[in-house]
Design a protein around this nucleic acid. Sequence first.
DNA 1: TATGAATGAGTGTTCATTCAT
DNA 2: CATGAATGAACACTCATTCAT
Lengths: 224, 224, 224, 224
Amino acid sequence: MTDRRIHKNKIKFHKDAFDKTSEERRNSVLSIALGEFASKGYSATSINDIARDAGVSIGAMYSYFASKEDLFLTIVNEGHFLMVEILSAIGENSSDVFDCVKKMITSSRTFALEHTLLNQIYLDLTTQALSPLAVRLSSELEQVTPVLLSSIIDKAKAEGLVSEHVDAKMASFCIDNILMIYQFSFSSDYYKERMRMYLGDEELTDIEKVEAKMMQFIKRAILL
Amino acid sequence: MTDRRIHKNKIKFHKDAFDKTSEERRNSVLSIALGEFASKGYSATSINDIARDAGVSIGAMYSYFASKEDLFLTIVNEGHFLMVEILSAIGENSSDVFDCVKKMITSSRTFALEHTLLNQIYLDLTTQALSPLAVRLSSELEQVTPVLLSSIIDKAKAEGLVSEHVDAKMASFCIDNILMIYQFSFSSDYYKERMRMYLGDEELTDIEKVEAKMMQFIKRAILL
Amino acid sequence: MTDRRIHKNKIKFHKDAFDKTSEERRNSVLSIALGEFASKGYSATSINDIARDAGVSIGAMYSYFASKEDLFLTIVNEGHFLMVEILSAIGENSSDVFDCVKKMITSSRTFALEHTLLNQIYLDLTTQALSPLAVRLSSELEQVTPVLLSSIIDKAKAEGLVSEHVDAKMASFCIDNILMIYQFSFSSDYYKERMRMYLGDEELTDIEKVEAKMMQFIKRAILL
Amino acid sequence: MTDRRIHKNKIKFHKDAFDKTSEERRNSVLSIALGEFASKGYSATSINDIARDAGVSIGAMYSYFASKEDLFLTIVNEGHFLMVEILSAIGENSSDVFDCVKKMITSSRTFALEHTLLNQIYLDLTTQALSPLAVRLSSELEQVTPVLLSSIIDKAKAEGLVSEHVDAKMASFCIDNILMIYQFSFSSDYYKERMRMYLGDEELTDIEKVEAKMMQFIKRAILL
DNA sequence: TATGAATGAGTGTTCATTCAT
DNA sequence: CATGAATGAACACTCATTCAT
């Protein structure tokens, strides 16, 4: 297990010039763009606004990115890279399925809280209108989770930890559905409110307990 | 249990004039708008285009709806009404939790297939950028599912069908997360592809089997 | 000879809305556009400038014309219509080839002087860069002159006015070449200067004499 | 007749730095610029595009030429130099007017075919919009043809080859008009199509015959 | 001398909305 | 009630030119 990198992230959506500017400029552009795309959505975001707020000329903007689309994808791509890294780490450092799922639950929340804007953008990307953009990322988005989850469940089945009646693929799908929306529940106002309706305000104050219950739900579903 | 209507749908986002036009015009406007909003997303959709394609003047358009927002909300509202009706029916006609969940799984799929465009719009609405719009619907969107699911689970616990260790709220949340994304998997290209990655092409040919497995996952999670 | 219209000018490049505005607006837009296109050329002309100078919003501009191209073609088309009308009239009212050519010489000059801007635009259109636009007009530009000239020469040959050794097609081509540039010599500075170099300043003061000499050149070329 | 060079080409529109670069670079820049200006016209051509395609930095571009205008003029100037050389050669090697005109007809075609792009640019230059640029060349463009033609015709008149009733200036003007457009008819799509309308597809297959007929037209116009 | 990042006014075009008819 | 002409700020993007390296 030498190469811990599942994902290589070869694709880049920016021009060479972007690599050559000062890190300050780069960060400024990316963070402003992140904020704009996250709060307004792809369509409603203006590249001119981003340029102005980032203190960069639009001319420079277009010397960094060939198009608004490419700027957007650059951000999504970086975000995805982050998530994949976290997932890979979890995959490698988990003793068993339950440990793994537990860590995934927690990191769903922490990732959404630490990278709220990124998460909002990711939600936007799943939208039908942005499917043409998602397609451009498809090779990158080749999901890590399906493989990770179902292989770890299969292993657990072999070890007798998980019932042989459990369908690994379906279980992975269901678990990821649960986690995906859980994650959105910390970044999108819509899902935040929805979670509040399900779990109530008070319950949510003790997030450890919430996650313990979620763990329990999943555990019951696959346990021997 | 006299009033079987959970949802009253009192709110309307259109002007009176819209009620007074011919049904043909009304349908034309709504169906064109549905198609446009679904495929392009809220921001990228032009009210002028909708008017033209619907064979209605923009002037008329603005006598029907105060703004683009209101036209959008009118459509979302109607869609939500449809979903609530289906859910209510399921709630009333189910013999027990398992029957109820089974019906919910099936109707997630059939609803998404029959009302694909509506479903795509709904996904758009969950986006952070549209949260101000979602807020305007909040009283309407006061979720039916949380109440329905958790009450039915509680009942089942009382009847000894469901383990007393199951947390009704969390179970409802998890089940709805699973179903929500399952539903999107029939309307949004993004989630469609994601489901294919989890379950594979072949598996998906026999949808009955897929849903049976999903049912099994949920059943195990809450069964005694 | 009842229908005196050779050319029907069915094609229009403007939207219906343009027909519906006030004639004042129409004239304002067209005359400003004429001036801009003529002096700056198609590419360097800004539709926003035209709108501003014509006292019309750009929005209105685009409700009149689908594109800058269409505005340009609308003007060229009208100009061509004018020229064709003049040529048709000449064709019908000429007693013989010589009379006809004489009238064509004169009207080349008067047309260029009365419609200098139009003529400048027409020159621009012959440019390779604008050939895609010229193609859109091709059915309209189906030249009247070739038919008119060669048929009138053929007739004159039959009547013994013109030598039978004269090739009607080539003669038409040569005569029109002479006239075309003569016409440009009254609208484009370049050709104006060029004519001055050929004919000299003084000679040009008596334009009747110039045209008599030109007539003589052509006459000798085709006379019996 | 010691100095056989009519034209000195002293004017240069490029900076010294351009003379100092490698010939390869020089050719690359000029040939790319030629192609761009020819197909897109002066205004629509981007100096940045030329630089990129020529494999030269924009910085270098501006060390070679003070402006887009100068780059354009450099090319036009070179082209003009070429044409003048050909014309001078014809003037010197012709036995009489008819021989001279014959050679001019042929070289109009061959020049247009061998230097199509240059010819297209030259047509662009005659445009009113580019007249400010043409002015900068005026001393250079001081036409060779007027002098050449009218002097050779005058000589022929003295020798009794050409009718004394022929006005040398006007004849030169007319002949050059014929030739100029004939030349454009091999480089600009517009004039190409126009010639086709005059002379027909079939006729044009035997270009020798076409030029013989043209020669005949001109001959008749000036012959004794 | 050569590079290419940077600028910012300007391009053609769109679109939510208003209002006179 | 319905029409659609009109508005003008805004959009994604281009380009001639400058200048620090």
